[in-house]
Write a protein that binds this DNA or RNA. Structure first.
Length: 108
DNA sequence: CACGTGACCCTAT
DNA sequence: TATAGGGCCACGT
């Protein structure tokens, strides 16, 4: 196995992110698996952190496996709340409630 | 070239 | 329910 093709990973991930429906969230790990890079959740995070603002992609709908939003980006919470997503007292979204249904089978 | 870092994830304690 | 540690891999210094 050679090195990961970051460009390929990015294009695949961005394509999927663009399809996340309003009011739903997806985890980094799920994105990695859907994109065909199951061991690269970290790279997905890297890609998200470098997503051009001009892309218009709904990267705020991507959270970690605990439903926690990205550090150093508090705005993400407001963006999700605008879509009707409520936060628990521990600061996480309820994945069982807001997970993108079409891919929720990738959980376990 | 070696090392530290990060919008991560899983298992064990 | 919390923390700790290992694995992961590209990137910048």
């Amino acid at each position: 196995m050679g090195k990961v093709d970051r460009k390929k990973l990015e294009s695949e991930v961005y394509k999927i992110v663009g399809e996340i429906p309003f009011g739903s969230v997806v985890t980094y790990g799920q994105l990695a698996r859907l994109a065909g890079f199951p061991q690269c959740a970290r790279m997905v995070g890297y890609a998200m952190a470098h997503t051009p603002e001009a892309s218009g992609l709904p990267c705020h709908r991507v959270v970690n496996s605990q439903g926690r939003i990205a550090p150093n980006w508090p705005e993400q919470r407001a963006l999700l709340e605008q879509e009707g997503i409520c936060f628990r007292t521990n600061g996480c979204v309820d994945l069982h409630k807001y997970m993108w249904k079409e891919i929720s089978h990738l959980d376990g």
